Computed example of a mutant assay.
Amino acid sequence: MTVEVIRADSDRSRREFIRFPRVVYRDDPDWVPPLEADELALVGGRHPFWEHGQVVPFLALADGRPVGRVAAIRNDLHNRYHGRRDGFFGFFEAVDSAEVARALLGAVEVQAREWGFDTVYGPVSPSMNDLVGWVVEGTGMPTFLMPYNPPYYPRLAEACGYVKAMDLYAYLASRADLENPRWGRMVQAAERLAERSRIRLRRVDMARLEAEIRAFALDVYPAAWGQNWGFQPITEAELKHMARSLRPVLVPDLILFAEKVPENPDDGPPEVVGVLIASPDYNPVLKRLNGRLTPWGLLRFIWEVKIRRSLKRTRVIAFGMKPAYQQTGVAVLMVHRVVQNALRLGFEEMEVSWVLETNRAMRNIVENFGLRPYRTYRIFVRKLGPDGS
Rank of each mutant, 00 (worst) to 15 (best):
G346P: 00
V163D: 13
G226L: 13
R84I: 05
Q111G: 00
Y221V: 00
V100E: 02
N149D: 09
M206I: 11
P151N: 08
D167M: 03
M146C: 12
G184N: 13
N290E: 15
A243P: 07
I302T: 11
L256F: 11
E351V: 09
V220W: 08
A176I: 00
Q54H: 12
G370E: 08
A41E: 15
V95N: 00
V32S: 05
K260V: 04
I234A: 04
G274V: 01
E179G: 09
W354S: 00
I213D: 00
A194D: 11
D130C: 05
L311M: 12
L193M: 15
L42F: 12
R14E: 13
L104R: 06
G268I: 03
T294D: 13
T119A: 06
V338P: 00
E236G: 08
G184L: 13
V187P: 00
A278K: 01
H82G: 04
E179N: 13
R155Q: 14
V120H: 04
W115M: 03
R382A: 03
M362E: 10
G87E: 04
W354R: 08
G320P: 02
V275T: 08
E348C: 06
G161D: 05
V95P: 01
R198Y: 10
I213V: 14
L40S: 13
V124S: 06
A60R: 05
A324E: 15
N129E: 13
D281T: 09
L384Q: 08
F347R: 02
P34V: 04
L77Q: 10
M350W: 02
R19I: 02
E357C: 04
V124R: 03
E349W: 05
E271Y: 00
G106R: 07
P126D: 06
Q188K: 14
W303A: 09
V335E: 05
H47P: 10
V332G: 01
F301C: 03
L59F: 10
D96Y: 00
V110W: 03
W183H: 07
A170V: 11
